[in-house]
Write a protein that binds this DNA or RNA. Structure first.
Length: 317
DNA sequence: TGCTCGGGGGCGATTACGTCA
DNA sequence: TGTGACGTAATCGCCCCCGAG
């Protein structure tokens, strides 16, 4: 029990006080027993020792005379007139303890005894001072750590906010570019619908377009598909897709007049193929798209084409 | 060799007192 | 002169370590 450790100090306190006290009145005062306690424990007895120690210079501690000088005779006497009052350590004592604490914040038993002797204090008082000092040091360290962490947090939050703003700006930029691209591709698509492929390259492209259209057709209204998309004379169209449509509806598509229109637009169509159906690679855009528009899976528009054919898939949504 | 017990010390929480504005 | 805030000495309870038996 911790208080048991104090009993020894208290008993010794009484003995030491009895040794030094020259008068009956001082003996009575130093033997004061705290009324609030039923036993010799606590700071009251310790204080009595401390007061006695300061007045006694028999052990030759050089702090004793200093303490007496610092506190003054009035204070010194007052301590005996007010037994049980807790006394603060003198500035000199605290400075000495601080220096020792800087050297080593843990107290070896021998060192404790030596410090106690030099300061005219009880070893337990020295131990308690070191204990409290360690607690204060820890608190200070925690405060420093807290301040440091808070500063770090503030810096990171500031960086995060800046990145958020930058991200928003880039998002808007991507949206703007995307809208432009959609408009451009829409125009290209309309041109493609009016074009009639006559060379093998165009026919191949036309087949590809038909395949794309087929995929789209599965999801769209059949009538809109007939009127808007299924105007190609591709053999694959005739063989594979005519059965899906009503025969009468496709007859008007192959009128001679329309054919002439195709020939007229041939150059435009070739141009369209080179510009729109096979656009130059966009190294950044798909990446950004994957980052910011993940609502649509990257493969959602993949109709099973070769990689180069997937350039059609920029505007399916 | 493992176990128990008691002493000693550290630590966190708390109390009590001194000091100061 | 009273009072609240703050610093600090000291206490209490708990835990861990270590040596003796």
């Amino acid at each position: 029990m911790a208080s048991g450790k104090v009993y020894g100090g208290s008993n010794m306190t009484i003995l030491l006080q009895e040794e030094r006290l020259p008068s009956n009145s001082e003996v009575l005062k130093s033997l004061w027993i705290p009324s609030s306690s039923s036993s010799f424990q606590g700071s009251k007895s310790m204080v009595s020792f401390e007061n006695g120690g300061k007045g006694d210079s028999t052990d030759g501690s050089f702090f004793e005379q200093l303490d007496k000088d610092e506190n003054g005779d009035d204070d010194y006497d007052g301590c005996f007139h007010q037994p049980g009052k807790k006394r603060r350590l003198s500035t000199t004592q605290v400075q000495f303890l601080e220096k020792n604490f800087e050297l080593e914040n843990k107290l070896e038993p021998d060192r404790k005894l030596q410090l106690a002797k030099e300061l005219g204090l009880q070893p337990r008082q020295v131990a308690i001072w070191f204990q409290n000092r360690r607690a204060r040091y820890k608190t200070k360290q925690l405060e420093k750590e807290y301040d440091s962490l808070k500063a770090s947090f503030d810096r990171l939050k500031s960086d995060y906010d800046n990145l958020l703003k930058e991200s928003e700006t880039l998002k808007n930029e991507v949206n703007s570019l995307k809208e432009k691209l959609v408009i451009k591709e829409k125009g290209s698509k309309e041109n493609l619908e009016n074009a009639e492929p006559e060379n093998p390259t165009l026919k191949t492209v036309s087949e590809t377009v038909s395949n794309v259209v087929m995929g789209v057709c599965k999801q769209e209204d059949a009538s809109s598909a007939k009127s808007d998309v299924f105007d190609s004379d591709s053999p694959h169209y005739a063989e594979n897709y005519c059965s899906m449509l009503e025969p009468a509806d496709s007859s008007h598509v192959f009128e001679p007049a329309d054919h002439s229109d195709f020939s007229q637009d041939e150059d435009d169509t070739n141009n369209l193929m080179s510009q729109s159906l096979f656009p130059p690679p966009l190294p950044c855009f798909p990446k950004l798209e994957a980052c910011y528009y993940d609502g649509t899976p990257a493969s959602s528009c993949n109709f099973g084409f070769q990689v180069e054919d997937q350039s059609f898939n920029f505007w399916p949504y």
